Amino acid sequence: MTEYKLVVVGAGGVGKSALTIQLIQNHFVDEYDPTIEDSYRKQVVIDGETCLLDILDTAGQEEYSAMRDQYMRTGEGFLCVFAINNTKSFEDIHHYREQIKRVKDSEDVPMVLVGNKCDLPSRTVDTKQAQDLARSYGIPFIETSAKTRQGVDDAFYTLVREIRKHKEKMSKDGKKKKKKSKTKCVIM
């Protein structure tokens, strides 16, 4: 069974824990209790493949930012979460993405942009803004509501699919490099 290491990042209060708990335990946590770091595991079937999701729910508070490099190193894919009623959390996505790329030393890291709290009427981040940002990053965008469960499975499952595509691409690139290195030079 394939294991996928997913990391949920975003500013404090955007609903990272609520999304994760909704996926794992099928219930909505409405009281806000700032996370330092929590880890969850769940076995699911995605596109006919049974897999184990190892999900790291991270601290959004700035005082825990020193811990970010460590979990970013171990993560295979990242859910970059903002709240649709919090423009600052949307603007912060850029910083999370840049930090992930720096730590992973790669421009090509599996990510999904997630606009959470889409059940709320007080939207300050337009869907088109988020779609445009995701398009500019070359990553999928999904709106979710941890409260109603809308888009929750889709967000995590899409990230797994992005990781699969990335692994497939990397193995193809690896095979191309191996083929090239088999060419021999004969000096007579």
Rank of each mutant, 00 (worst) to 15 (best):
C118M: 12
S39M: 08
E37Q: 01
Q131E: 11
D30E: 13
S181G: 10
S39R: 04
F28I: 03
T183I: 09
A134G: 06
G12L: 04
L133G: 06
D132Q: 05
M67I: 11
R102S: 06
G75S: 04
S136P: 11
K172C: 14
D57T: 00
S65W: 04
E49K: 11
S136N: 05
E76P: 02
V8L: 09
K178N: 10
E63R: 05
R41E: 08
G48N: 08
V81A: 06
Q150A: 12
K176F: 05
D153V: 07
V14M: 11
T87A: 14
D153K: 06
E168C: 04
I139D: 04
I100Y: 02
S89I: 02
S39C: 15
V45W: 08
V29Q: 11
H94Q: 15
T58C: 02
A83E: 15
E3R: 06
T183F: 05
K117Y: 14
L56S: 01
K172I: 09
G75N: 05
Y157E: 10
R68Q: 04
V44C: 12
D54P: 03
V81S: 10
A18D: 02
Q61A: 13
E49Q: 12
I187F: 08
Q70Y: 15
L19G: 15
Q25K: 05
H166D: 11
I100P: 02
L19S: 14
R149T: 15
F156P: 04
K165N: 10
K88E: 13
F156L: 05
G48T: 09
R135A: 05
L56Q: 01
M111G: 01
D92H: 03
N26P: 05
M188L: 05
M170R: 14
G15M: 02
F82N: 06
G138C: 08
T183H: 09
L120N: 15
Y4R: 13
S39D: 06
T74F: 05
K16H: 03
V8I: 07
D30R: 11
T20P: 00
G13A: 11
V81H: 14
E3V: 07
Y40N: 00
F141W: 03
K177H: 14
E31F: 15
D132N: 06
L52S: 14
G151T: 07
V8Q: 03
C118P: 14
S106A: 10
S122G: 12
E49C: 06
I139F: 05
I21A: 15
Q25T: 13
V152M: 10
D126N: 09
L19T: 13
R135K: 14
K42Y: 08
K42A: 08
Q131N: 10
T74C: 10
A66D: 03
L53Q: 09
I55E: 00
G77P: 03
S145C: 11
Y96L: 15
R73Q: 07
M72Q: 02
L53Y: 13
D126P: 07
S89Q: 05
E162S: 10
D154E: 11
D132M: 05
G13S: 13
S39I: 02
D105V: 04
K167E: 09
N26S: 12
I36F: 03
R68W: 01
S122K: 07
C118L: 09
Q25W: 01
A155Q: 13
D132R: 05
I84R: 11
A134K: 02
F28Q: 01
Y137S: 13
V14I: 12
A11M: 12
Q22I: 08
C51L: 13
I163D: 01
D153T: 07
V45G: 12
K42S: 09
F90E: 05
S136D: 15
A11I: 13
P110G: 02
T124C: 09
P34K: 02
G174E: 11
G12Y: 10
T144Y: 05
F28H: 04
A66S: 07
K178Y: 10
L53R: 03
D47W: 04
M188A: 14
F78R: 00
N86Y: 02
A83W: 03
A18Y: 01
M72G: 01
M170S: 12
Y96C: 07
E91K: 03
F82R: 01
D57A: 00
T20W: 00
E76N: 03
Q25V: 13
D153A: 08
L23R: 07
Q99V: 02
K16I: 00
D126R: 05
A11S: 11
D154F: 06
Q70S: 07
E76S: 04
T74N: 08
Y32D: 01
F78N: 07
Q99K: 02
C51M: 12
G75Q: 03
H166I: 10
P121C: 07
H27D: 15
Q131T: 11
I187M: 13
R41I: 08
S17F: 00
E37C: 00
K88I: 07
K42N: 10
L133Q: 07
G174Y: 04
K172M: 14
Y137Q: 07
Y40D: 00
D69S: 05
R68K: 03
Y64V: 00
T74A: 05
P110T: 04
C51K: 12
K184R: 08
R135Y: 14
L56P: 00
A134P: 11
Y40G: 00
G13K: 05
Q61I: 04
D108K: 13
T127G: 06
L53I: 11
Y64E: 00
C118N: 12
F156Y: 13
E107A: 11
T148M: 05
R123D: 14
H166S: 10
I46F: 09
R68L: 00
Q70W: 13
M111E: 01
I93L: 06
V81T: 11
I55Y: 01
R123M: 12
K175G: 14
A59W: 00
I24Q: 10
Q43V: 11
T50W: 08
S17I: 01
L79N: 02
G138L: 15
R73H: 10
K180N: 08
V125P: 10
R149P: 08
I46V: 13
E37K: 01
P110K: 03
L56G: 00
E162I: 10
Y40I: 01
K172Y: 14
P110R: 03
V112R: 01
S136C: 05
L52W: 11
Y32G: 01
Y4W: 06
K184L: 03
T124Q: 11
K178L: 12
G13M: 09
M188Q: 12
I139E: 07
D108A: 11
S145G: 15
K104H: 10
K128W: 05
R97F: 15
L159D: 01
T74G: 11
I139K: 04
S89M: 02
S65R: 07
D154H: 05
F141N: 13
D38A: 02
V7F: 04
K176M: 11
V7Y: 04
Y4C: 13
K16V: 00
L56K: 03
I46G: 14
Y137D: 09
E143R: 03
K176S: 13
L56E: 01
Y4I: 13
L52A: 13
R123W: 07
K175H: 15
H94E: 11
R123G: 13
K172P: 06
L6Y: 06
H95M: 04
D57F: 00
E63T: 05
M188Y: 09
R123E: 13
K177Q: 15
H27A: 14
G115Q: 09
R102H: 15
Y64N: 00
R102F: 04
D126Y: 10
N116D: 13
E31K: 04
E49Y: 12
H95A: 15
K175T: 15
R164L: 12
M188I: 03
L133S: 06
S17T: 09
Q22P: 01
C185P: 12
S17W: 02
G151E: 07
T35K: 00
I36Y: 02
K169V: 04
V160P: 03
A18F: 00
Y4H: 09
G174R: 10
L120R: 13
D57Y: 00
L56V: 07
D92C: 04
S122E: 09
D153P: 07
R135C: 10
M72S: 02
I24P: 00
A130S: 08
V103H: 04
K175W: 10
V14Q: 13
F78S: 02
K178M: 07
I163N: 05
K178E: 12
I55G: 01
I163F: 05
K5C: 05
G77N: 02
A59D: 00
Y64F: 09
T35A: 00
C118A: 10
Q129G: 14
L53C: 11
K88Q: 10
E31H: 07
Y64A: 00
N116S: 13
L120H: 11
